[in-house]
Design a protein around this nucleic acid. Sequence first.
DNA 1: TATATTTGTAACCGTTCAGTTACATAAATA
DNA 2: TATTTATGTAACTGAACGGTTACAAATATA
Lengths: 112, 112
Amino acid sequence: MRRDVFQAIADPLRRDIISLLAKQPMTINAVAKKFEVSRPAVSKHLKILKECGIITINQDGRERFCQIEPKNLIPAFLWIEQYKTLWEEKLDSFENYLLELQTKNKNNDQNG
Amino acid sequence: MRRDVFQAIADPLRRDIISLLAKQPMTINAVAKKFEVSRPAVSKHLKILKECGIITINQDGRERFCQIEPKNLIPAFLWIEQYKTLWEEKLDSFENYLLELQTKNKNNDQNG
DNA sequence: TATATTTGTAACCGTTCAGTTACATAAATA
DNA sequence: TATTTATGTAACTGAACGGTTACAAATATA
């Protein structure tokens, strides 16, 4: 199975987990409590994120703290960034497009 | 099924197709010939890319030209960019890290 | 008109994904 | 020591993924 950063961020729940862990390290249970799905489900996502290098997990007694490893998002960032000039060329105003996107996100209540 | 930009770029073959179409528009057959997999397989990937808004397809006679729609990569770019300050904080030198990454990519012959 | 080209798509296959419930284990606590 | 807490994981399920082959249809060309 593919285990890379693109796979890691493909799932919306995993993106939410990343957003959560970007604020502060949390135990596996604490993460699980933030979502509707079961703990094993979250646990599996965390395992995938770990295998993709996006988080590290450190044990302290019976607790395991998940910590984001932000530098491992860089390859995905660089890949998309290649096309930045392409879209900047094609858009009259990048800033206006961003505003438009933000409005759209508010309406749809997306966070992905 | 999920049809968003994150899903679109999750597959390495789709990323290769995007890279190809970023250079110039191409017919479906022309794209298919660039890869080892069958034409229907490529066709399916193009369909997914279209459904995700990453490409548009314009018919001219019996040929269909696929064209990249680079602005639809922006949401993914913005999502990852959120964490830019986070990794810049944690890395002694972003530039050195990039060099290191480039070397790694050369060795592994990755293009993803 | 007959043939070749370009494409779509249906049917199928094996694997992976994302979730569940149920149970096991190790550590902290009463 | 008995119980609670934090976690792992096995077994299962249904859906989605990524590929194939085979066939159909529309357009261009000889």
